[in-house]
Amino acid sequence: MRLKGKVIIVTGSTMGIGKAIAKKVVEEGAKVIIHGLEEDLGIQVVEEIGAEQAKLHIEDIVNEGAGQRLVDLAMATWGRLDAIVNNAALVAASTIHNTDKAFLNRILDINTFAPLFLIKSALPYLIESRGAVLNIGSINAWSGEDNLLAYSISKGALMTMTRNLGDSLFRENGVRVNQINPGWVLTEKEIERKKEHGLADSWYKELSKMYAPAGRIIWPEEIAAATIYWLSDESGPISGQVVDLEQFPMIGRNIPKDSTTIPHKKN
């Protein structure tokens, strides 16, 4: 088991990528703090994992002191903290025309500021365990889709924060900070989001090679599998790194001939 004996906080882990990560780290021997907003879903995750390996905390991550309460729960339950996975995020469509200050602040609070302050709350214990932080970003950090302005800004800021802390915290205290940028992932929320945009119920089964060369998009479990290296001791002294997890390169990609084909919309 690659994470045997470790205690890990995974934010936003009542569903989607976070849930997959939480289940995977437990498979690899870790104990996990489950966090999110959906209590019923969180209870289900704990039941699936087992109450001896998982504890649940339901709270908006942007609440004052929320990060400290997650850290306190880990310490009170298992007496140590080895890693944080900053996965909780809000994906919301916006452009320059409809992004106001309040909206942008809300996105930044969840996607950028909350991860920073959770790291700060956990730092004394991560120093003690020579632990690790893994931030879950997005390939939108590089520029983003035209209707994901605020979200893309927040993930770009998170990426810069990862590189900054990945250098400073490792030099000062031996705490590694890295990031993975998932591409298009088939989560529960993504399925519903695209249906709300007018796509057919089976949109993810009819994808163009332009968007999914494999004929499908990435599963949450595939992202979860990639996190284990960064959370384990196998990654050694590697810190301040950002890795894209998508089916095609973000730079220098050749556009396929069927690039005009999009998933079928409802009539």
Rank of each mutant, 00 (worst) to 15 (best):
D201E: 12
P263I: 01
A66Q: 02
S235V: 08
E38A: 12
W142I: 05
A74T: 01
Q179C: 13
L186I: 10
I110F: 08
L70D: 07
T11P: 02
S154R: 02
K205R: 07
P213V: 01
N98K: 09
I17C: 12
E172I: 09
A122K: 04
L207M: 11
V133D: 14
I33G: 09
D233N: 14
I49L: 03
L104E: 08
N181Q: 08
E28D: 10
G12Y: 14
M250E: 07
K195Q: 09
K194M: 13
G183T: 01
I153A: 05
I228Y: 12
W219L: 15
K155S: 06
H197M: 15
G240I: 00
I17S: 07
N267W: 09
T11Y: 05
G79T: 14
N63A: 14
F113H: 13
A54D: 00
N181R: 07
H97P: 10
S232F: 11
A200H: 08
T261V: 15
G29T: 07
I218N: 02
I34F: 11
K209P: 05
L108G: 06
D201W: 12
E206F: 10
R216E: 12
G240V: 02
N140L: 00
G166H: 05
Y151C: 02
A212N: 00
N267S: 14
R106T: 14
H197L: 14
T160C: 13
W142Q: 07
I61V: 10
T99A: 15
A224N: 03
R2D: 10
L207I: 11
